[in-house]
Design a protein around this nucleic acid. Sequence first.
RNA 1: CGGGGAGUGGCGCAGCCCGGUAGCGCAUCUGCUUUGGGAGCAGAGGGCCGCAGGUUCGAAUCCUGUCUCCCCGACCA
Length: 429
Amino acid sequence: MRMSRTFVPVLRETPAGAEIVSHQLMLRAGLIRQTSAGIYAWLPLGQRVLQKIADIVRREQDRAGAAEMLMPTIQPADLWQRSGRYEAYGPEMLRIADRGGRDMIYGPTNEEMVTELFMSEAKSYRDLPKMLYHIQWKFRDEVRPRFGIMRGREFLMKDAYSFDVDEAGMRASYQAQFRAYLKTFAALGLKAVPVRAPSGPIGGDLSHEFHVLADTGESAIFYDAAIEDIAIDAPDAVERLSATYAMEEEEHAKVADCPVPEDRLLKRRGIEVGHIFAFGIKYTESMGFTVQTADGGQVHPLMGSYGIGVSRLIGAIIEASHDDDGIIWPAAVAPYQVGLINLRQGDEACDRTCDDLYERLSADGIETLYDDREERGGAKFATMDVIGLPWQVIVGPRGVKSGVVEVKNRATGERYELSPEDAVAKVAG
RNA sequence: CGGGGAGUGGCGCAGCCCGGUAGCGCAUCUGCUUUGGGAGCAGAGGGCCGCAGGUUCGAAUCCUGUCUCCCCGACCA
């Protein structure tokens, strides 16, 4: 993509009102603009990152056996009246009326709707187990939106729902999602700690929050240092992680005597990017969902729900990966892999070299953001550093004269002087 | 919802106490000179000072109301 065609409004100064670095950088790099408290427009660069993250989430959900669907943002109120949550949810739920005066809501989550959709078709234990998910915008009228998209009112969430005939099945679904979460966060280049969450109606250990460690995180967590040594791709990773101590501050405070020795107990701040629960028959019972069993009886399927804050993850990634100059995108989620800088736009040789490089990179499937604007070199460097793409390819008259371009790695700062061919090979990895 | 703060060209801010018809830096436009890490000179454009009332000869400035945004606290992906 040429910079002259896309819309990347980079800010030189830190905008007033942006407190944490991820919020500042998202505004500065032209990813988002605020439209009202806790609600943001996603500009081209931000939208690309959102899609990259969603793709990774989607890949791991599919691998875990979940099927993607898409439920609406607007839901009828009576669905929620049936589950009893229309009253219970409180003012956080945005309630609206259509022209006919029918009560509707903007969905904060989808347990009722997915249950309704599935129960009208599933009548037998043979229809189970089933795991469904979608990636959809949610609205929660937070008492206090803050930190940019980190706690927005409107946010993009992946929410998955599992249905099983018995508790063993529900536990298996829960474990499958747990594993998918570990893989998802690892693929995003994040270290996420699974934290035991206050258990729901089922009790036991069937609710975990996943926290990305960051000093600006909203919650404080206590955990056994041993947790950091558990390889997430080990076959027993889920079992070992769930068996290792990790609690949010509030819960930790309730623990009479913590089993973790003083020197191994770490206190860190975390950003909650995922939360999984198994809550059994809470909704299938209230909404009257039963399936017939092999022996002719009727049972309420047991459910679990599994959320990942897709938009929040962007904030978490930036909190974990930036420097004084700007964002440092992990390659997996970078909006483009390469930033191509033409130091002398309008110079025939430079333009030709850049156009040629842009063609080759594009032909090789390497996503490239080509800064073809008539700006001074210095400004282009700073712009590209804020945007933080993994690679920068810098084309200037001096290099072009001797047949080389500069290749720079944003994360390590390593620089290479290479022929255009070698530059393409270098950034292709 | 309780407590604090802020709304002044696109962005960042000053002016407000002590009313007199709006200013600075960056950005933008034009011209010239520049050109390898946020260029220099000269010139130009752009603001019903959040909104509504009030006081006054006169309001960005004083008074009242209202809206919006930010921060701290109780809640959440």
